[in-house]
């Protein structure tokens, strides 16, 4: 069969969602920010809630998310997206509200806003892009930087004695009564992207049903900050990030499902 006979409108099976604007993404080649933007926009398109969704962009590489997502958006001061989201959701409870934040934004300068928003159980969705680094500002160490991981401010690797421990903030918020759904996903393979999309759909459905806060961590690459090619960065992520930040659901419908968290709480799982 000739390619010309395949490439016809009636045979179309996948195209870029129109909820992504025609602007070229400002992200480095291979960066998971772009993939995650697309997944969120596909879910919003499928749910038909484009006109009723308000996103909060962070400070970080995704500061310009409002240029790429064709929905109403606000850009918040560094780390304050959950507070801004809280205000918008409480003013307009019928709207769908989500924040989109990096690890420096959500787990460093914004830790307080994150924890209290999750603990209050605001009816919003938080999307958390964890690339273990401050991507935008030149690859400085973040709270999420792995032990031994090199960054521009830990050039010999993160040394716990001097620099402290990495923070698993997702495990932390899973234990707060205000969170309904807490999961850790990735977007480096087609299967991972499809799983993330299911999680994002569940998060927005939870918001529709007023079930509480949904929190989705996406473990992602920062190939520029890690100083690797995109392909090598994804491999490095699988080998180094996933053992410390294991993928999977931690809490579903308000019940903790992660074995690690249950055993921390003294619940026997086997």
């Amino acid at each position: 069969m000739d390619i010309k006979d395949i490439i016809k409108p009636e045979n179309l099976v996948y195209k870029r969602t129109p909820l992504l604007t025609s602007n070229t993404l400002s992200y480095c080649p291979g960066c998971g920010h772009g993939t995650t933007h697309r997944v969120i926009m596909e879910v919003i398109e499928e749910m038909g809630i484009q006109a009723d969704t308000i996103g909060i962009a962070p400070v970080g590489c995704s500061v310009l998310a409002y240029d790429f997502m064709d929905i109403d958006m606000v850009q918040a001061a560094h780390g304050r997206a959950p507070a801004v989201a809280t205000g918008i959701k409480r003013t307009w409870p019928e709207k769908f509200v989500f924040s989109y934040q990096g690890d420096g934004d959500l787990a460093a300068i914004g830790t307080s806003e994150t924890i209290h928003c999750c603990n209050r159980g605001e009816s919003i969705v938080i999307i958390f892009i964890n690339n273990g680094i401050y991507g935008m500002t030149g690859g400085q160490m973040a709270p999420t930087t792995l032990v031994g991981m090199k960054s521009s401010t830990s050039p010999y690797g993160r040394d716990v004695a001097f620099m402290g421990n990495p923070l698993k903030i997702t495990e932390l918020v899973a234990q707060l009564p205000g969170t309904c759904f807490v999961t850790r996903q990735a977007v480096h393979t087609p299967a991972a992207v499809r799983k993330t999309k299911k999680a994002v759909r569940m998060a927005f459905e939870n918001q529709k049903a007023n079930k509480g806060l949904s929190f989705i961590e996406v473990v992602s690459n920062c190939n520029s900050g890690w100083k690797m090619t995109p392909v090598a960065a994804n491999k490095w992520m699988e080998e180094n990030m996933f053992p410390f930040y294991p993928l999977g659901d931690m809490k579903v419908d308000g019940r903790i499902v992660s074995k690690e968290l249950l055993s921390l709480a003294g619940v026997k799982t086997e």
Binding site: M1, N11, V13, Y14, R16, L25, Y27, C31, H188
Partner: peptide, 30 residues
């Protein structure tokens, strides 16, 4: 680009993983 177009099954994997969303996929039953 498609170097081996005859092999394409239209599974959409490449488009799903593309961070810039620049791949469109077509599929037909032969």
């Amino acid at each position: 680009y498609m170097e081996y177009p005859d092999n394409c099954t239209g599974c959409t994997n490449c488009a799903v993983v593309c961070p810039d969303g620049v791949i469109t996929v077509y599929r037909v039953k032969e």
